[in-house]
Amino acid sequence: MTAVSARTAAERDVLTEPCGMTGVGTRSAVEDLPWVEDAGKIAPQDARSLSKAFFDRLRTLEEGTPTYQYARNTLIEMNLSLVRYAAQRFRNRAGDDTEDIIQVGTIGLIKAIDRFDLSREVEFTTFAIPYIVGEIKRFFRDTSWSVHVPRRLQELRVELAKAKETLSVRLDRDPTVKELAAHLDLSEEEVVEGLVAANGYSAGSLDVPSSGDDDGRQQRGHAEVLGDWDTAMETFENLHDLAPQLERLDERERLIVRMRFGAEMTQAQIGAELGISQMHVSRLLNRILRKLREGMSVVA
């Protein structure tokens, strides 16, 4: 992501002889602005004084014109050192994403430039740093969570962390949910919701050895000890509920069930064994199964 466009040929046409600071020239004709050939190399102290001149002129220019774009782009390039300065606060959290942090901070710098007004009588650096830091913090807030949770709960996690630290010092122990709720003027349910949501900030690997194995055996990863749904459990529960229903059948009905589902005999074989037709066996089985289903539904 490149926040600053390259110098255009039209901008270069207004460059005249160099003056004063390194990389700075004067504009010859229409606009009374110094030309900055390489704004990124301007020293911070020079950038501060030059920025005032550019801001003063920027507010009189029409947005979208080449001169306006030149002034705005130069302000961005001259003040990128503010982004690098602010990004240093987050170097321990950035890891390999330092370039992303610089890019995100540059967005904050651009917002600060677009909203800055010299009439505020405040230094631009003082005005810009909160915008840059705020944009970087927003980046971490939106991308650092392992599990996505609503922004409201992300912000509540930060408030809870601060409250726990304050109350721990005051009470010399970890605060309770009730004490946290009173301190933050929240309900206990909201505090619990925030504490639960905080678990989504980071995730651990399932291959990390679980604690609690003190008998000298090699520790197993969480994935090896986590419980799973046992498909046989449902079968066990169904058989447990079926047993009393089978007891309610008469002797002949229980015999038919044993032959059909225990011995896995066909209806024709059952009929031959009992001296009845296959059709009669089918009707008896349907009646027995209906009786068992009704009994099972009452239990459930």
Rank of each mutant, 00 (worst) to 15 (best):
I256H: 03
N286S: 04
T143F: 12
Y131T: 03
K41P: 07
A9V: 08
R258N: 01
A86M: 14
R120F: 13
Q218D: 14
Q269P: 01
F124V: 07
S146G: 14
M259R: 06
S210W: 01
Q45Y: 03
D250R: 07
D215Y: 08
Q278N: 06
R258G: 04
R157Y: 03
M279R: 15
G295F: 12
E237T: 03
V298Y: 15
R290P: 04
P66R: 05
I276C: 01
R173M: 01
R258P: 05
K162S: 09
A29S: 14
T125Q: 11
E188A: 12
H240A: 07
Q103I: 13
E159F: 00
L61Q: 05
Y70P: 08
Q219F: 00
R157M: 05
I136K: 03
E253F: 14
L284M: 12
F124T: 01
G221S: 13
D97H: 14
Q154N: 13
M233T: 09
W145E: 15
E135A: 09
G212V: 06
F55L: 02
R252K: 14
M78P: 10
E155S: 15
E234D: 07
T126Y: 09
S144W: 09
E234K: 07
V104G: 00
F236W: 12
G25P: 00
G95P: 05
V104Q: 02
L242E: 08
A29D: 13
D207A: 08
Y85Q: 09
H280P: 04
P130Y: 05
D32K: 12
L246R: 07
A9K: 12
K162A: 14
Q45W: 03
A197G: 10
V147T: 14
I270Q: 11
I107W: 05
L255K: 11
S187Q: 02
A9L: 11
F127A: 10
K164H: 02
G271V: 08
L109F: 12
G200T: 01
A161N: 09
S205K: 12
I256Y: 02
F116Y: 08
E99F: 04
V36P: 02
I110F: 02
